[in-house]
């Protein structure tokens, strides 16, 4: 049983793939490079050190959310509650004294809320067979209600200096928050790509029935997936609160959509079982570059939203066609 799960598929059984499908996983990196080159040609300011540093600063919170979203989407779900978790952890960040001494309790409480949200999401999806869309929508609304009740609509307080530094400071142009992203991406990327648990995630997402027949506790794997997503969103909320500096009830608004767009663009299939962290992060990078280019080119900022909408449909259509 265990061997069946762990053994790699025999090379001989792999169907011959055409040249285009063999290189199609390069489509996104090539697209990203083209995007950067063209943007640099159109507007030289795009490739300036400060602008690149600025883009890295912006990609970190989104990338962290995408890591969690990737797990959930590979498990055939999606997580709409991430933005609510982010805002809640940003509110938590300012609920203590605002000194560095409170960093640990803030981290514990925020991640605790993220984990708890993930557990509720996971239990609803697995034990009650609620569709992931509705389950995470409901927890999003409930969490939002609690947050508003807690802050009475007007949050106040300060973000500890350490979070300010992590969220917005740079070292020789390299933002600290990108280091947080890299560490998390390596840990959870390896967990997904190299560990036994990662394989169970792919099998469960690819076909839950098969997973059960192979002796995998599909429910447990799914719940852990949502827990990872909640925890990532909580950390991203703290990082973003350090970037924004001031606190409001809507830190992270729109990240649920952006993270799903990035994941889908990165080849993580909404029908489950396919894709990886690297693709998702490339998707996040493309989004940030496009948003940045829109601003640098002096185009109306509303175009960002329109491009987002077109990109998600085109990307989804592209991958559907490829998988057929």
């Amino acid at each position: 049983m265990v061997d069946l799960v762990q053994s790699k598929p025999a090379a001989a059984t792999e169907p011959k793939r055409s040249l285009t499908s063999r290189f199609s996983h390069l489509a996104l990196p090539v697209f990203l490079i083209l995007l950067i080159v063209i943007s640099g040609l159109v507007s030289p300011a795009f490739l300036s050190g400060s602008n690149i540093s600025n883009m890295l600063l912006q990609v970190a919170p989104l990338g962290i959310v995408v890591i969690g979203q990737a797990y959930v989407i590979i498990l055939r779900g999606l997580d709409l509650s991430v933005s609510s978790v982010m805002a809640t952890s940003a509110v938590i960040a300012t609920s203590f004294s605002g000194q560095n001494g409170d960093v640990l309790p803030i981290l514990l409480v925020a991640v605790g809320i993220g984990v708890a949200t993930g557990i509720v999401n996971g239990l609803l999806v697995t034990k009650r067979s609620v569709s992931p869309f509705l389950a995470t929508l409901a927890t999003m609304i409930v969490l939002q209600g609690f947050r508003f009740a807690y802050t009475q609509g007007a949050p106040s307080g300060n973000v500890p200096p350490l979070f300010r530094a992590i969220g917005s400071a740079t070292w020789n142009g390299i933002p600290y928050n990108i280091l947080v992203l890299i560490v998390l991406a390596v840990v959870f990327g390896l967990l997904l790509a190299r560990s036994r648990f990662g394989r169970e995630v792919y099998i469960t997402g690819g076909n839950p029935t098969t997973a059960r027949l192979l002796g995998i506790n599909a429910d447990r794997v799914t719940i852990i997936g949502y827990v990872i997503s909640g925890a990532m969103a909580a950390i991203a909320g703290l990082v973003l609160s350090g970037y924004v500096g001031i606190v409001d009830n809507w830190v992270g608004r729109g990240f649920e959509l952006d993270s799903i767009v990035a994941a889908v663009m990165g080849g993580i299939s909404l029908s489950g079982g396919r894709g990886g962290i690297v693709g998702g992060l490339l998707g996040a990078a493309v989004l940030v570059v496009v948003f940045n280019a829109v601003l640098l080119f002096g185009l109306p900022v509303q175009l960002q939203i329109i491009i987002k909408g077109v990109v998600i449909v085109v990307a989804a259509a592209f991958y559907v066609r490829r998988s057929r």
Binding site: I260, Q302, G309, I312, V320
Partner: peptide, 18 residues
């Protein structure tokens, strides 16, 4: 496009908002 209505209408929603 044969993609899920969730994605299609999500994208359309963003375009219309813009």
């Amino acid at each position: 496009l044969r993609i899920h209505p969730l994605i299609v209408t999500l994208g359309m929603g963003a375009v219309l908002q813009g």
